[in-house]
Structure formats: C-alpha cells, structure tokens
C-alpha cells in the first residue's frame, strides 16, 4: 500500500478533510493527546477530539466510517490514484462556469496562477487576502472566486494548493476555446464531463 493511502487514513487528516476541525483545533487536540501520553494515558485522537467538544457523536461515527471505507477501498484497483486530482478539476469547472467569455477565462487562469504563487509557502490567510485584492479590480471578481475553488480545501499543504492551482490554470486556459462553441454550457455539462474524465483516468490499466 502506498504512503499516500496510509496518509489519508489518519484521523488527524480525516477530521480536517471532512471539515470538522480546523488546524488550530487539531493542534489543541494533539497537544492534549501528547500530554495524556506523557501521563501514561494512551488516548486515541478521536476520543480526545470528542471530549474537547470539537466533534460530536455523529461526526465521530462519520470519521470512523470513512476510515474503514478507505481501508477497504485501498486494496481495490484504482484506489491508489487518490482524490488529489479532484480539486483542481473542480476549480477549473468553477472558473469555466463562472466566466462567460474566452477573455474572461484567460483572466481566471491568470487569477489561478496568481493564487498558485500566493499559495506556495504562504499561509491560507494570505491567499484569501490575495483573492480579496483581486475582487477589488472590476471584472475579475468571478476569476478570483474561481481561484477559491480549490484552495479552500483546508487540509491541503501550501505546495499541494499551489500545484493544484497551477493545474487548474492550465485546464482553465485549455477550456477557453470551449466558450466559442455555439452551445449554452451549464454546470451540468461540466459535472458530467469531469465525472467521465475522472472515471476514465482512474480505470485500472
């Protein structure tokens, strides 16, 4: 089993990925868990999170279900190509849907590239402020919003965010000519196309 699959199984990753706990809360729980370990109490992180009130009973169950599900899925073909690609594809969908002209799509790609630069090695807060600055320029609000599509993933590292944004910028640029087609494209078209593309990409060879 590859490292990336094991990485996605940890409670600390799951609770953040599922949006139940933010980084600060997780740090708090980890500190407490470490304190408990020093006291000789080997507490599971999920118990600590629940006792701190950071997750409730349902969320605890969801985390455990996800963990068990991923354990099963990890041995199935295609599972190892994890969900890493989902987010930048999603960002491209958002930007392509929001922007209704080829020039606007290029602007979105530029915003995504700027987002990538901001995301590299910088905390998420700065990226948000970068988008905010971009929205102040008339006409680029949608482009800046598109950039938010991927990097709002609170569990990703700065490098992963930057890579995702760059990929999204490339895909968004590639989608610019699609806007020239005489077809009214809706999010439904993008959802179906992206689902098919991701499924084909994950097909075991």
């Amino acid at each position: 089993m590859s490292d990336e699959v094991v990485e996605g199984l940890r409670v600390r990753d799951l609770v953040v990925e599922l949006g139940y706990v933010d980084r600060a809360g997780l740090e708090e729980a980890l500190d407490l868990q470490e304190d408990l370990h020093e006291q000789g109490v080997k507490a599971h992180l999920i118990d600590v999170l629940e006792d701190l009130g950071l997750i409730d009973e349902d969320q605890r169950l969801q985390v455990l279900l996800h963990q068990e599900m991923r354990l099963v899925l990890a041995d199935l073909p295609g599972a190892r190509r994890d969900q890493r690609h989902d987010r930048w594809v999603m960002a491209a969908i958002v930007s392509a849907s929001l922007i209704r002209s080829p020039l606007g799509v290029l602007a979105a790609a530029a915003a995504l590239a700027i987002g990538a630069w901001l995301a590299a090695g910088r905390p998420w807060r700065w990226v948000a402020l970068g988008w905010l600055a971009a929205t102040a320029v008339p006409g680029t609000a949608a482009a800046a919003t598109a950039a938010a599509g991927v990097t709002g993933t609170s569990g990703a590292t700065s490098r992963e965010r930057a890579t995702a944004l760059l990929r999204a910028a490339v895909l968004t640029t590639a989608l610019a000519p699609v806007r020239l087609l005489p077809v009214e494209l809706t999010p439904l078209h993008y959802f179906v196309a992206a689902a098919l593309a991701l499924a084909v990409a994950r097909r075991p060879r």
């Binding site: 304190d35 599971h44 999920i46």
Partner: peptide, 15 residues
Amino acid sequence: ARPSGGTRSSRPTGS
C-alpha cells in the same frame, strides 16, 4: 487532575 489511565474503544483510529 487528569485521568490516570483506562481502556478505550478497540476500534482502529489510525492515530
């Protein structure tokens, strides 16, 4: 005061 120990759920948590 902190708990001095005890058993926990046997379910795997991966942490």
